[in-house]
Design a protein around this nucleic acid. Structure first.
Lengths: 115, 115
DNA sequence: CTCTAAGATCGAGCATCATCGATGGGACGG
DNA sequence: CCGTCCCATCGATGATGCTCGATCTTAGAG
């Protein structure tokens, strides 16, 4: 994968290309792609993590363990899932990884849900 | 629980009461509730099921097994999960159960995601 | 009442996931 | 070079979830 300063999601299938869920029956491929992004959000810890990053603008991984009440490997696990879904983008600066949200991706999800 | 013509979701925690995910850090309770609704949508079969019901307005359970390619118990399993999440409402008419979507609930989810 | 059909529930099998301890790999300070 | 710190990855474990065959309940037909 990325060698440096490239913690952006790898999978990140397209979601906002086609009509919404309520317009026309979803194809299997579209349904699978949208389900993956929704699965990334369908976890209380990841929702709070995402919400924390969104509120603070930019957050270091080390500042997430405390508020989330989870171990360091677990936090790393969740940030990776959100990044793979394209919802989070991380940048390595020195020893720290700084995370920020990807608003466009969240907007795509809302639109796929019938916005 | 309901005795007749009451296939409406039982759990259906509130979602759209408070601010969105991107406004302020989510509390544990809000995160858990929102995660449950998102988990109900985070499955390809359920997304296609929901999409089918939305497109046709009202659908009988027996008309879902074919398009979804799943057995009758599996379809019943998925409709129950969507109904418990408050996204689907079912009405028993004779031997058939007719399903329709709950647009307000979907709207709540979109708003919780930062609409 | 009997027979059939629709749908909900049960139980089991198999896969996926959340979590954490241990380990590895860079980056910085002395 | 050495020790420290941050973070990613690995391996194991317990919990959840998807799926389907079998069964039960209910409603209509004859």
């Amino acid at each position: 994968m990325g060698t440096r300063a490239d913690r952006t999601g790898a999978a990140a299938t397209t979601v906002g290309c086609c009509g919404s869920v309520v317009e026309a029956p979803l194809g299997e491929a579209d349904a699978t792609g949208l389900a993956q992004v929704l699965a990334a959000l369908a976890d209380p810890v990841r929702l709070r993590l995402f919400s924390l990053v969104a509120a603070r603008g930019e957050v270091c991984s080390c500042d997430l363990e405390g508020p989330l009440g989870r171990s360091q490997p677990t936090v790393s696990h969740h940030t990776k899932i959100l990044a793979d879904a394209g919802l989070l983008a991380g940048e390595r600066r020195g020893r720290w990884t700084w995370w920020r949200i990807v608003p466009e991706r969240l907007h795509d999800v809302r639109r796929a849900l019938g916005g």
